[in-house]
Each structure stands twice: as C-alpha cells, then as structure tokens.
Computed example of a mutant assay.
Amino acid sequence: MPYATGRVFHDADSHVMEPADWLAAHADEALKARLGQRQTAERIEQGVATARARKGDAEASRTAAENLISGPKGWVAYGAFDAEERTRALDELGFSRQLVFATSSLGPFRTSSNPDVLYGGARAHNRAMAAFCADERLIGVAFVPLDDPKRALEEAEEAIRLGCGAIWVPSTPAGERSPGHPDLDPFWQLLADKRIPFMLHIGPGSRVLPAEYTNNGKPRSPDLHGGGENLRFKDFVVLPFSAQMFLAALIYDGLFDRVPDLRGGVIEFGAAWVPGFLRQLDLGYRSFGKTDPLIKAFSMKPSDYIRKHIKFTPFPGEDAGYLIRDAGADLFLFSSDYPHPEGTNDPIGRFERTFEGLSEDDRERFYSKNFEEMMGAF
C-alpha cells in the first residue's frame, strides 16, 4: 500500500542525494577535475557505500522500498541517488509528480568568481539532474545563476532542451543587478513562454545572517539534526528573508507586468511568514503609492501579484491549516522533502492535523491543484 492514497498528491519538494562523483560524470572535460574534488563527510561516504551495496541484495532492497517515509533518510535512503530505485520509491510514496532539487552538488561552483566555473558547473548539474529524472513523473529542477543575463538565458535554454521542468535561481541579487532588471527579461520571458516555473530554494547564498552573529563566545552549536551541515537556530529565524527580498524586487521592478505569464515557487523556506509578508507588501503600497512613480505604475496591489504568480511550501511542523484560513487556499503546496529528514516520518499526517474545518476544495488545492497551476498543468 503506498504511503499517499485517496487523492492525487504532487510533491513540490524532494531531493537527490548526490555522491561525490555526481557532477564530474556530467562535466565538460575542462571542469571534470575541478568538479570532482567534492569533499564529503565520512558518514555520507558510508551512506553511499551502504546504498550501493544494497543494490545487489534483493531482501535489503525490498525492506528499504517498503519503509520509505518512516525509514532511514539521507544518502542511505531508497532512491536517494539511484534513478531506478527512485522510480520504485515514487510508486511506494504514492505521489503523481515530484519536483527534484539538488542537495549538495551546487557547493563546488555556486560561489565561484570564475564565470566559466559557475556556468560550467550549472550545466554539469543540469545534465546530471535530467539523467536522474528520466521517469516523466520526476520533474528535474535545473539550476541557473543570473549573474550574466546572456549566459543565464543560454543555460536555461539548454536545461529545458535536456528535459528539466523547472529552473532554480538563487534568491540573491543577480550579480550587480536586481533580478527584476530589464537585462534579464529574455530569461524570464523564456520561462513564461515554455511554461517553466522558476524556483527559490534554500541553498548557497540564500542565508542572510552575517557571519559575525555566529561569533558569540560559545562553542558552535549542532545543526538541526545534531550534525554540522544544516541550519542552526539563528539561521532558521531569518531563513525567509532572502526570498522576501527577491520577490519584493521582482514586484517593485515591474517584472510581473512585463512578463504576465511567469510563475514560480518558494520552496523549503517555510510559510509561516507569508501572511505577514503579504500585509507588509500592501502596507508599503499604500504608504508609498502616492509619491513613488514605480508603484503608481503597478497594475494591481503587491499581494495580488503574489497570488497570481507564486506558491509556497509550508514546513510539516507549521500550522498549514491556519495559513490557508488566513492567507487563502490558492498559495500553498504539499511537499515531503524526501529523502531529507526535515520532511519528517509523516508529512501528510502532520498537515492533516491542522486542517480541521478546511473544505475538500482547500485540500485539493494544497495537494495537487496549486502545483498544477504553478507547473502549467504539465
């Protein structure tokens, strides 16, 4: 019996857990050595080795495939990086579609000051993602930096040609430009024309907490799961700020009026902040609208741009029912975060416990319809 039953479920956030050689296998020759130098923790290497050894053990594979949500997560999880396993994992999970994001493979190139490394790494990532997502139910999320508008357009075109179904862009300035700068209009227009949504997702560059705040005279705290690679409390508190700045820039710069068919998702930033963000946007609109010519040119109030163009994934621990009742059923998406442990051992159950009083249409929107709208109904 699949984990998810009784309705259509689309999963707006899942991941591939990349082995150390994941990028290099798909890189151009000049970058193979550079992108093959990823350093991984011993526990990750052990997880990859365990998962690969399981491949030849029918009983171990069967046990892992039947214990997905409540079983081991991370690199040892079933389908974590093996495409054949992932197809069966999707059957066992019961999801009709699943967006697939990178986990750690952006690190070797994302912050490089060399544009050839930055964009060459992105192309290697996108090739690897397209290969992993050969099953049409898996929607590979390409990664495209916006620093160079011309190269961003080229990489987006190539990612779409490869079969990627969404484009992850950093929730940061686009090099020295705002992401709503007209120089990037051809990139955004391509996505709109091809019905390919952009994605914001936690990752390199999305954390806005200055490093000085970690210098508190105390030992470094463990991360969310007791290790060293993930979020800490201070990071978590400011997690959505980069997404808020990015979206505010797109609205203020008039992008959604210039590219009215563009759609996007804000994934794994949580959503408890969304109702207040909508109110803050509209307060600014009322406060500055009489004097600011850019705001006077808006065709609708800022919160309406968000409702038309953007969807959000709540964390399983948030009161998603309250968010829907407060901000509306048209904004939020279901996600499992598989095989990351943050997705918990029962995301559907956790969301459902907050859904008292919601209608069947509200639930349908959350589990499938909003996803289909974001994706252009495939």
Rank of each mutant, 00 (worst) to 15 (best):
K150T: 15
H181G: 05
R127T: 00
P173N: 14
A152S: 14
K150Y: 08
P108Y: 06
R97I: 04
V100W: 02
D135Y: 05
P108I: 00
G175Q: 12
L106C: 08
R127N: 05
F101N: 03
S171W: 04
P115G: 11
H125C: 02
A102V: 09
D183A: 14
D135L: 06
V100R: 00
D91Q: 12
A166T: 07
R127I: 00
L93V: 09
G120R: 00
R151T: 13
A122T: 07
T87N: 06
L184Q: 05
F132H: 00
I139M: 00
S105P: 04
R161Y: 10
N126D: 03
E154P: 01
N114R: 15
E176Q: 15
F101H: 08
I160M: 13
G107T: 15
S104Q: 07
F187D: 02
D148Q: 13
G107M: 15
F109E: 04
L190G: 02
A131S: 13
A83P: 14
L153N: 10
A156I: 06
Q98K: 11
V141D: 03
P170M: 13
A156F: 04
E176A: 15
G107Y: 13
F109N: 04
A134M: 09
Q189T: 05
A156C: 12
R137K: 09
F143L: 11
H125N: 00
G163C: 08
R127M: 01
D135Q: 05
R110I: 14
L93R: 08
V141A: 01
G79A: 11
E85M: 12
A152H: 04
I139Y: 04
E136N: 08
I160K: 13
F109T: 00
V144E: 02
P179A: 08
Q189E: 10
P108T: 03
R177H: 07
A130H: 05
